[in-house]
């Protein structure tokens, strides 16, 4: 008489692995948020007790009014005209200070638009606007008047 021993096959059960994997995928898909992680860098000058040298006459003053109106050195201007206006001044003095001064009720987005435009000086007019400053209201009150 012949006996046959039934052999249990040696293998790792992987049938549920795909289910587990897909559950993990669903978890990551639900929890992932593609966050905005880019922006304009805005280097801050160090806070000093001695007043910084801000000479209004020698610098270019860009005022941003509520509603988005831009006034450069007391002349109303469009956003795309600013760099053309600055070009001859920067050719004479590449370190020409450019001061952005938004009014308290102006929209923050309008300030960013002007700052972004100035940062594109190299691409648009071939000269980098190196000396951009955005003084705060406290600094203006403390050092300008």
């Amino acid at each position: 008489m012949k006996f046959t021993r039934s052999k249990a096959q040696d293998e790792i059960p992987t049938s549920s692995m795909a289910d587990i994997a897909f559950l993990l995928i669903i978890y990551f898909m639900v929890t992932t948020t593609f966050a905005a992680t880019r922006g304009l860098d805005f280097a801050l000058p160090k806070e000093e007790d001695t007043p910084p040298v801000i000479e209004k006459e020698e610098s270019v003053l860009i005022e941003i009014r509520p509603g988005g109106a831009i006034v450069v050195d007391n002349k109303p201007m469009q956003l795309n005209e600013i760099l053309d206006y600055l070009k001859p001044k920067l050719e004479r003095n590449p370190m020409k200070p450019v001061i952005i001064r938004p009014e308290p009720t102006a929209a923050y987005g309008d300030m960013v638009n002007v700052f972004d435009e100035l940062r594109q000086g190299e691409e648009k007019i071939g000269i980098q606007v190196k000396n951009i400053s955005v003084p705060t209201q406290r600094e203006i009150e403390r050092f300008w008047y």
Binding site: D41, A43, E47, E103, T105, V134
Partner: peptide, 25 residues
Amino acid sequence: VPYRYVDRVIDALKQSKAEVIYLLS
């Protein structure tokens, strides 16, 4: 947002000696 809110935050960062800020866009 009116710029005065941002101005006060930037001023606080300057006073706290923060060196670099990014304006998220």
